[in-house]
Write a protein that binds this DNA or RNA. Structure first.
Length: 428
DNA sequence: GGGCCGTACTG
DNA sequence: CAGTACG
DNA sequence: GCCC
């Protein structure tokens, strides 16, 4: 679909929009979304080169330059601009990056013809597709409810080709949480028996029973490595974190207390560097690099910010670079996305874990509500609860129906029902 | 050197 | 698309 | 970080 065939519902009589770059009203905003790094710098350079007035905020821009993949509703939605018709404020003119590309080719600004314009405010008549901003939400507490459907009998069973290679290495939640989905693999599709698992790629072929005993043996090592992995992943050094995580998993499977360097270096996924560190832990009981890390201001702050739901390594770093150091700094000064606002508001709550009894209570309530909506549902609480953890960070509830159909579309009514009962504080 | 789990949502 | 969540 |  060429540019010219995209719908432009503005005055067909206008051949092009004229403006003078120096006109104080000719302000531009460049929406980088959907544009790769290289193209992005090319465009921002072009904007400079042509002396266009680039604003950092879209709010007051007369022109908004966006990638071709965008249509007006998307732009409004992404930028959170007011789309309502009866608004004294003039609507921006949304134009394609192609205008910049062509201008670069020509070495000067080419006329801003309608072919470049995704939507001009001028004459538009047709009702805007109502992209009302905020649908959802609000009213009550934590516990992430995520009924999922899956595993119903419409699961493609046969496929021999796709054996499941499930792994996990989540660092955040359960500190001693490993085995994953083994039941799922066993019951549903794992074509192998435990004894004959293909070597190497399986990180999770161990029963929780066995594993539990093992955690104690090398506990100190695992804890320190885990702490390091957590820090690395919050630093954006995810591959290093990944390696630590793999090493941790490997060590978990060791039934024996590790007590020699030779022993360590032989373990798969553990190389020289990690082996030395592990040996340091065994030998001296401490891990210097970890302690240095933990005590540095940077890591402390990044760690603090990184625990905010909706804030990952990059945002945390940005905030740090902006000089923020405390949660209060963020609350008062930082730009927070919707999710981050929630994450910050419930900082402690999100970090907290609940005793499994509480999960049982929640499960009971959800069951009650779900069954009231559709009888004969199969409802199973999974996750850490099902694995027998003493405490849980969330509640995972799997809801299906043996007919593979009846559970469909249940989620919204269920959430609604729970909300009415006062059980749900917030629906994210 | 360059890959390293897969998928979905948000903005 | 980049960043994030999550099992 | 590890490994190919």
């Amino acid at each position: 679909m060429s540019a010219s065939s995209t719908k432009n519902d503005f005055d067909e009589n206008i051949a092009s929009i004229d403006f003078i770059p120096s006109d104080p009203n000719a302000t531009f905003y460049f929406l980088p979304n959907g544009i790769g790094k290289d193209r992005r710098t090319i465009f921002t350079n072009a904007i400079q080169q042509f002396h266009l007035q680039l604003l950092t905020s879209p709010k007051n821009a007369r022109f908004i330059i966006v990638d071709e993949q965008f249509d007006a509703p998307k732009v409004y939605s992404v930028l959170k601009l007011d789309a309502s018709e009866n608004d004294e404020k003039p609507k921006p003119i949304i134009i394609q990056t192609k205008w910049l590309s062509d201008s670069l080719k020509e070495k000067h600004l080419v006329p801003l013809t309608k072919d470049y314009i995704i939507r001009a405010p001028l004459i538009r008549k047709k009702a805007m597709p109502s992209f009302s901003q905020e649908p959802v939400i609000e009213e009550k507490t934590r516990f992430q409810n995520k009924p999922k459907r899956r595993l119903s009998d419409d699961q493609p069973q046969g496929g021999s080709a796709t054996q499941v290679k499930q792994r996990r290495y989540s660092s955040d939640d359960d500190d001693d949480d490993y085995d994953i989905m083994e039941d799922y693999n066993d019951t549903v599709k794992n074509p192998y028996k435990h004894g004959e698992l293909p070597k190497g790629n399986w990180m999770c072929s161990m029963s929780s029973q066995t594993a539990k005993k093992n955690t104690e043996v090398n506990k100190d090592i695992i804890e320190k490595l885990q702490a390091m992995a957590d820090l690395y992943s919050k630093t954006n050094d995810k591959w290093r974190a990944y390696s630590y995580q793999k090493a941790i998993t490997t060590i978990r499977r060791c039934t024996k207390r590790i007590d020699s360097y030779e022993e360590i270096i032989k373990l798969p996924g553990i190389g020289e560097s990690l082996a030395k560190k592990i040996w340091e832990i065994i030998d001296t009981g401490s891990f210097e690099k970890l302690e240095d890390f933990q005590s540095s201001e940077y890591m402390t702050v990044i760690n603090l910010f990184g625990n905010i739901w909706g804030c990952g390594p990059n945002i945390a770093k940005q905030w740090y670079d902006q000089g923020f150091r405390t949660l209060d700094d963020l609350r008062t000064k930082a730009k927070l996305s919707h999710n981050q606002q929630i994450g910050l508001k419930y900082y402690d709550e999100f970090l907290e874990r609940m005793p499994r009894d509480e999960v049982a209570e929640i499960e009971a309530v959800v069951k009650e509500h779900a069954l009231a909506l559709v009888p004969d549902l199969t409802i199973q609480t999974c996750g850490s609860y099902r694995r027998g953890k003493a405490t849980c960070g969330d509640v995972d509830i799997l809801i299906t129906h043996s007919d593979g159909i009846s559970h469909q579309g249940l989620l919204i009514p269920l959430v609604d029902s729970l909300r009415k009962s006062g059980m749900l504080l917030k629906f994210i």
